[in-house]
Each structure stands twice: as C-alpha cells, then as structure tokens.
Design a protein around this nucleic acid. Structure first.
Length: 445
RNA sequence: CGGAGCGUAGCGCAGCCUGGUAGCGCACCUGCUUCGGGAGCAGGGGGUCGGAGGUUCGAAUCCUCUCGCUCCGACCA
C-alpha cells in the first residue's frame, strides 16, 4: 500500500480523552475513531489488525476441531425469558423494541441463541461432541465505558459453545479450549496466563480467565513468577488425545495464578517468596464449564445410547477480539509509539523513501515494494513528499516491526537500511538481501 | 449510578470572572528556501462559540433548560 493513496489520519498531539497508552496510540495512529461513548469506527490500519486477530482466532479454533457459525446481533427477548436471563441480566443489556412493539435485545452473549440452534437440529448423542463458535459484535451497555476498545460498549468477541454427552466429555472440551487459547495468544506475541476466576453472570462451576500482565490492567492478579515462563512453543498437541490435552492444562494451571476474586492468601503464602508476584492484568478471554444450566432450562436434549432423553453438557468460551488490540499495545509499546508483534502487525514492513521525487530513489523503492510483494509481503510504502523526520515519526508511531529505509546516500553504496522497531538496531544490506531477510522473518508467521 | 469537570476551526487550547468586531499553536492551501529524526519565512482559507429559551441597545461571556463527552468511585469482557 502506498501511503499517498491510503487513509491514515495520524495525530501529532495527544487527544485529551485518552488516558491510557493503548487508547492514545490507537487514536494517534489513526486506527479508530470514537463515534459515541464506548463505540468506535475502525479505520483502515485498525481494521487490518482486527482482521489479523480474527484470522488467528479462526485458524486456532478450526485446528481444535471447532466449527464456525454466525448469529445475529439482535435477538428476541422471548429466547432470554426461557433461560430466565431476560430479567436477571440487568441494565447492561441493551433492550430495543421493533415497529411491532416486539421486545428485542442487542446480544451481550449468545448462550440462548446457540442452544436454540442446537435443539432445533441435534437430537442424538451420535452428533456429539460438537463445538460451535462465532466472531460477532456484542453490546454491553457499560455504565462507564473507558480505555478505548479495552472497555467499549460495542466489542468484537469470539464466543464458542461446546455440546457434549457427559461431564467428562465437556471437561475435555474445556481443556481443549484452554490449549487452543494458549496457542492463540502466543501467536499474537502475548503471554496470557490462565487464572482461576469467578463465573459471574454466565454461571457455572469451572472457569479460568486469561490475563495479560500490564500496569493498566483492570484486575489485580497474584501469581507464581514461574508461570510466565511457560510456553507452548512449537509442540504439536493432538486435540483428540484427552491425556495429552489435560497434561498441557495441568502444566499451565498448577502454579499459583489467581485474580483478586478467587485469591487465597493462605495458599499464596506457600509459593516461595522469591516467586510471589502481585501485579495487574488485562482479561483477554475466559472459559466456562456450566453443565446443563441452559440445556435443561431450554430443553436441549439428545437421546443417549440407552435411549433416554438427557440434557447436553455445555460450556462457553470467549476471546475479547477487539480488546486484544488494546492489550497487545499495552504490552508492547515505547514512548514513540506502538511496537506490533509480527503475528498481528497491520503491515509486515514499511518502506521509507528519503528523497521522494529523486528518480533513482523512487525506482529503488518501487523495486523493493514489488520484490516484497512477490514474496507475499505487502509493505506500507511511505511515498509522501515529506521530510525524513516526519516519515520516521509516523513509522515509529504506527509500529510496523520492520522498516526499510531507502536514500541516495545508501544507494550510492548499493545498500538500503533494515531497522527493527523493537530493538532500534539497523543493518545495511542490498535490497535483495533485505527482501530475503524480511521474507525469512515472516516465513513461519 | 454517586461525585467532579468539559463542549470555542480537523486536533490541542486561550477568551467567559468584569457583556462591546472570535483569537493562538499544530494541521490544511500557495510561493520561495530547506531536505537522514515531526523544517524556516511570507501569504491564505476555514467558526451559526454543542442546542433551545431568556435578560440586554448588544451574549462565546450572565440566567434557565437540554444534549453530548471526559475524569474519580462502585460495577464489568
């Protein structure tokens, strides 16, 4: 993408309403525009990141054997009366009436609707296990939206629901989600720690939240420092192998890690003092096992092998897709701007043309741009007629992990400059070598 | 929802107390110079001062109502 033809409205000054760094940088980097309290438009750069995150979430869900669907944002109140949550949910739920005075709501979550979908089409244990998920906009009418997309009212969320015959099967689904989530967050360059949590309005017995450590986090967290060193890495996990999946979950949940809701000073005191940590975290996902709470209330049953009608065992699982962008920025930035992990960056690399209009420099940038494209890498090429300082400042702000700088001085020696946004270190090399280097970096991402 | 604020050019702000021709910086446009870390000079465009009512010869400024937004707290993905 040529910057001269793009829509990237960066701001030089800090918008006054943005208090935390991710909100500030998202506004300054031209990623989002607030439309009303807690409701945002996504501008091209922000949309690219949002799409990248959705892509990773989709890939990991499908890898785990889960099946994508898409449900409407607007739901009928009747469905929610069946589960009893229409009255239980409170003013956080946005209620709407259509022209026929029918009561509707903008879904804050989808347990009822998915259960309705399930009961309409599944009637035998032979169809189980089944996990359906979607990535869809939700609305929760927060009393006080703040921190940009980290706590908006409208937000994009991946919500998944498992249907199983037995509790053991449902707990395997729970574990499978935990592993798939760990992999999902790692691909985004995040360390997200599963922590024992409270079930809140979803209800249920077993639940973990995934927390990204950040000073601006909304939750106080208590953990054993060794938990942050655990990595899934390249290991392949067979999602159908219960023991293997369970072993990974045990590995990641044995060390102490809890939010303030479930924190226990007594148990925490048993963690060796040098490993004990108290910090803050941003919640980027949560998994629940809740058994037959919704299936019983809504008559979602299957015929068992013994020929009996039994309510299905369920759980639900969420990833805060839009809020993840805020969390990633909170975890990865410096005083000049964002530093995107390669996995989620809007563009893999930026090209800075230091002398726009100079025939040799323009031609070199052009060749570089095409060479990268031939490797499947779409560069953001700053071809504006701006001074070097302005171009560097823009690149630093929007945080592309790699920058290739092309100027007459380097071209005279046959080199361009490749700079890492994260380390700030530069290397001079031929344009061909630069293309090869960037291509190698992104080969496995 | 309790408390505290703010709405003046795209963004950040001054002007309001003490009523009298709407300003500054950045951004934008034109020209010249400059050109490897947010350039300099000169010129220029852009506002029903959030909205409605009222007081007054006269309201951005005073009064009433209203809408929107932000911050602290409680609550929450």
């Amino acid at each position: 993408m040529r910057l001269s033809r793009y829509f990237l409205p960066v701001l030089k000054e800090d918008p006054k309403e943005a208090q935390i760094v991710s909100h500030r940088y998202m506004l300054r980097a031209g990623m989002i525009k607030q439309q009303s309290a807690g409701i945002y438009s996504w501008l091209p750069l922000g949309l690219r990141v949002l799409n990248r995150i959705q892509q990773i979430v989709n890939e990991e869900q499908i890898r785990a054997g889960h099946v994508p669907v898409l449900m409407p944002t607007l739901q009928s109140a009747d469905l929610w009366r069946e589960s009893g949550r229409y009255d239980a949910y409170g003013p956080e739920m946005l209620r709407i009436k259509d022209r026929h005075d029918r009561e509707m709501l903008y879904g804050p979550t989808n347990e009822e609707m998915i259960t309705d979908m399930f009961r309409a089409h599944v009637s035998s244990y032979k169809s189980l296990p089944l996990t359906l998920y979607q990535i869809q906009w939700k609305f929760r009418d927060e009393m006080r939206p703040r921190f940009g997309v980290m706590r908006g009212r409208e937000f994009l969320m991946k919500d998944g629901y498992n249907f199983d015959l037995t509790k053991e099967d449902a707990l395997h689904a729970y574990n499978r989600h935990m592993v798939s989530y760990l992999r999902t967050y790692e691909r985004m360059g995040l360390t997200a720690i599963p922590m024992r949590a409270d079930s809140g309005p979803i209800g249920g017995e077993d639940t973990h939240e995934f927390l990204v450590l950040a000073q601006t986090g909304e939750s106080e967290v208590f953990y054993d420092a060794r938990v942050t060193e655990l990595k899934l890495g390249d290991r392949s996990v067979d999602y159908d192998n219960r023991e293997e999946v369970k072993a990974v979950c045990d590995e990641f949940t044995t060390l102490y890690a809890r939010t303030d809701e479930t924190h226990d000073e007594g148990i925490f005191a048993e963690v060796p003092e040098e490993h004990r940590r108290v910090a803050r975290g941003i919640e980027v996902g949560q998994i629940f096992y809740f058994g037959t709470k919704y299936s019983e209330a809504m008559g979602a049953t299957v015929v068992s092998p013994e020929g009996k009608q039994i309510p299905v065992e369920m759980g639900s699982h969420g990833i805060g897709v839009s809020r993840l962008i805020g969390a990633i920025i909170e975890a990865s930035h410096d005083d000049k701007g964002i530093i995107w992990p390669e996995g989620v960056t809007p563009f893999p690399v930026g090209i800075v043309n230091l002398k726009q209009g100079d025939a040799a420099t323009d031609a070199a940038c052009d060749a570089l741009y095409k060479g990268l494209a031939a490797k499947g890498l779409e560069a953001l090429y700053d071809d504006r007629d701006e001074r070097a300082g302005a171009k560097f400042a823009t690149m630093d702000l929007i945080g592309l992990p790699w920058r290739i700088t092309v100027g007459p001085r380097g071209l005279a020696n046959g080199v361009v400059e490749v700079t890492s946004r994260r380390t700030g270190l530069s290397e001079e090399m031929s344009a061909e070598a630069a293309i090869a280097k960037i291509a190698a970096i992104y080969e496995n991402i």
